[in-house]
Amino acid sequence: MDLKNNHTDSNHKLNSHISFDKVRKQKHEEELGYTLPEGYFSASKNEILRQTVSKNKKTRIIKLISLSAVAAVCAFFFSTVKFTNDVSTEVVINDEESQILISALFVNDKKLEILSDAYMLEELYEEQDVVN
């Protein structure tokens, strides 16, 4: 046990970790009596990757599949709606009242006001004619 040799920083370098891992393992086993199941680090690495990177990839694939499914449903929905609208448009074209109602939707407020005023005035004139 040499406490002086402990003051090294070189183990912080990214590429020299393997030999330091060996020294560290030896130190823990020989001085502290800790042991490990055989092949522990390899099994643990796989388990950690399964729970992180692989899970993330799986989630991405599921998301992609879900998005594709949603896109397919949306496409189906819109094509159905379009088809229904096409059918109903045909009906509207044949219906004169509905055509007028729809055209009314495209008349702006000012024009509508003028029209209603004209209609009111016309009604008033007619009433006056009847009185006279």
Binding site: K25, H28, L32, F41, S44, K45, I48
Partner: peptide, 27 residues
């Protein structure tokens, strides 16, 4: 993971003592 797995395991093991607990904490 390659860089830190072993060193963190030993760091944790000394704190929690048992291998089973160290494994859980490492994960």
């Amino acid at each position: 993971l390659d860089l830190y797995q072993e060193r963190l395991y030993w760091h944790i093991r000394k704190l929690v003592v048992s291998h089973e607990n160290a494994n859980d904490v490492l994960q």
